[in-house]
Amino acid sequence: MKHKLAIGALIIVGGIAYLTSPKDVPSASSAPQSNATQGALAQVLIPEVLSQNAQIGKRAFDATCAACHGTNAAGQVGVAPPLVHKIYEPSHHGDDAFQRAAASGVRAHHWRFGDMPPVDGVTRGDVTMIIAYIRELQRANGIN
């Protein structure tokens, strides 16, 4: 009898774990890791050299985006998605999508993080440089 109760308890616990685990969430990038960050959703290979615009964009990203999207746009578990991910490749989310997201926010549609609010204090020029940084990270990780 105790054996049957133990098996029943395991089945219930397993069912609860299954039902409460995230589903339909795209997997993180599998690029080689060079910036291991606890809680990151993607492993991001950092290019050896960034263009001048991307360097400016990195500083702006670190100041306005990294708190949510993580170091080097690797995302953060339970906070925000990685931008170094095939979902954000230029053919799917063009540069204007980044501009609109920063200016007006965006409703959640690929990930289960909730809606992104507008980013106060960031200009179109700032976002242009941030995009340069993101695109260079993406190219270094095989996302074109």
Results as ranks from 00 to 15, higher is better:
M1A: 07
P90N: 11
D24I: 11
P32Y: 07
Q76E: 01
S30W: 05
Y133H: 02
A108G: 09
A42Q: 01
K2R: 09
V44K: 05
T128E: 15
G75V: 10
I87C: 06
V79C: 03
G75P: 15
R124G: 11
V77E: 14
S21F: 06
A42P: 05
E89P: 10
A9T: 12
V122Q: 11
S30R: 10
G8P: 03
V106Q: 15
P47M: 02
P117V: 03
G142T: 07
G94I: 03
G114F: 09
D62P: 04
N141K: 07
A40M: 02
V127G: 13
P32I: 07
Q33K: 12
Y18R: 10
A103F: 07
S51D: 06
S34K: 13
L5Q: 12
A63Q: 09
G70Q: 04
G70M: 02
A140F: 08
P47R: 04
N35D: 13
Q138L: 08
R124S: 13
S51F: 00
M1T: 13
S51A: 06
A9Q: 03
T20R: 11
N144C: 01
N141C: 07
T71P: 05
K23H: 09
A54S: 08
L41Y: 09
T64P: 00
G125P: 01
A63L: 07
L5K: 12
